[in-house]
Design a protein around this nucleic acid. Sequence first.
DNA 1: GGCAAATAGTGGACAAATGCAACTATTTTT
DNA 2: AAAAATAGTTGCATTTGTCCACTATTTGCC
Lengths: 164, 164
Amino acid sequence: MPKVTPKPTTIEHVDLDVLENTLSFYIRTMNIAVSRDLDERLEGYDVARGTGKITTLLLVDSHPGIRPSVIAQIIMKDRSAMGRLIDQMIEHGLLTRQTSERERRAHELFVTPKGAELAATIRPIVTEQSKDFFSFIAEEEQAQVMDILRRAYRKMVGMTGEQH
Amino acid sequence: MPKVTPKPTTIEHVDLDVLENTLSFYIRTMNIAVSRDLDERLEGYDVARGTGKITTLLLVDSHPGIRPSVIAQIIMKDRSAMGRLIDQMIEHGLLTRQTSERERRAHELFVTPKGAELAATIRPIVTEQSKDFFSFIAEEEQAQVMDILRRAYRKMVGMTGEQH
DNA sequence: GGCAAATAGTGGACAAATGCAACTATTTTT
DNA sequence: AAAAATAGTTGCATTTGTCCACTATTTGCC
C-alpha cells in the first residue's frame, strides 16, 4: 500500500512477471498482431477475417475433393464451425460441395473458377505477409522458429508423416 | 474436374500448400491449441477464457498503480476492450481502480487481497502449462523459439529496453 | 491567458466467432 | 438386425472485437 501516488509505469519499464518466460504468452500475443496485420492486407478479398478461410481455400484448391472434416482437423475447428465457414465460402461463390459417392455421409469440396483465381491471388500475399511481418527477425531465425513450430504442429494434429 | 470420385484425402497425406512454409500459419494455429489448453487448466478460476485477464492480473499485481492504457499496449487491445476487461475483473473482486492524483485523466490499478491470492495461484499454473504444452519440443528449442519471439514482441510493442 | 490538439477512459451498437448440445443420415461393428 | 461410430447440420447462448462518438484532463502553441 503505497503512501504516495506511484510513478506511472511506462511500457519501457514493465517487466512481464512470469509471462516473460512463458512461450504461450508470446504465441498468444504475436497471434493477435499477425492476424490483425494479415486482415489488413487481405481487406476486400472476401477471405479476410478469422482463421480458416485462407487455409480452407488453399487446401481445397490443391486437394480437390477434400472433405470438411479433414480441413477441420487441420485448422483445429469443430465440425459445426467448419460447416459454417464452408457455407459462407459457397455463398461467396468460392467453393462447391457435393456428396461423396463412395461415402455418402461425407462431402467433397471443390473450388470454383472464382475460387481458384482467388487462391492464386492470395498465395503470394500470404507468403509475403508472413515474411514482411517477421522481417525484423533474421531469415535464419525465422526458419528456425518455423521448423520447430512445424514439428510441434504436426505432432499435435497427428500428421505423422508416415505414408501408411 | 475428376471423372472418378477422388480418393479421400486423409490428414497424413495433406500438404499445406504455401502455408507449409508460412510462419504466420503456425503461429495462428498453435495459438488456438495453446489457448484452448490453457482455458481448460484454468477452468473455474475466473481468469479463464480470452487473452488478457491473466496478463492484466499478473501485471497489476507486480506493478501496483499501473494504468489501463499501458496494459492495453502490452496485450494489444484497444482502450475500450481494456476498460471492459477491467470492469469485469473489478466485479469479480480482483482489482480496484482509482483516479491518479498526478494525472487526473488516468486511472491506477491495484489488486485486492483476493486478486493477489489468485495471482499467486495462477503463476505456477501458467508457467507449467506452457512447459507442458510444448513438452514435445526440446527444452533448448523451446528456449530458442521463446528468445526469438520475445525480441519480436518487444520491438512490436515498443519495449526498447532503454532505461530512459 | 486562452484555444486547439492530444491523451485517458467510458458507453453503445453491431458484426463475428466459439462452444455446446441435439438431431439426421450413413456406414461399420458385432 | 441392433448398436456404435462417423459426417455433417442447426439452433442457441456467450463472448469478443471493432468502430464511433463523447467527456474529462492535460499539453502545446500563439
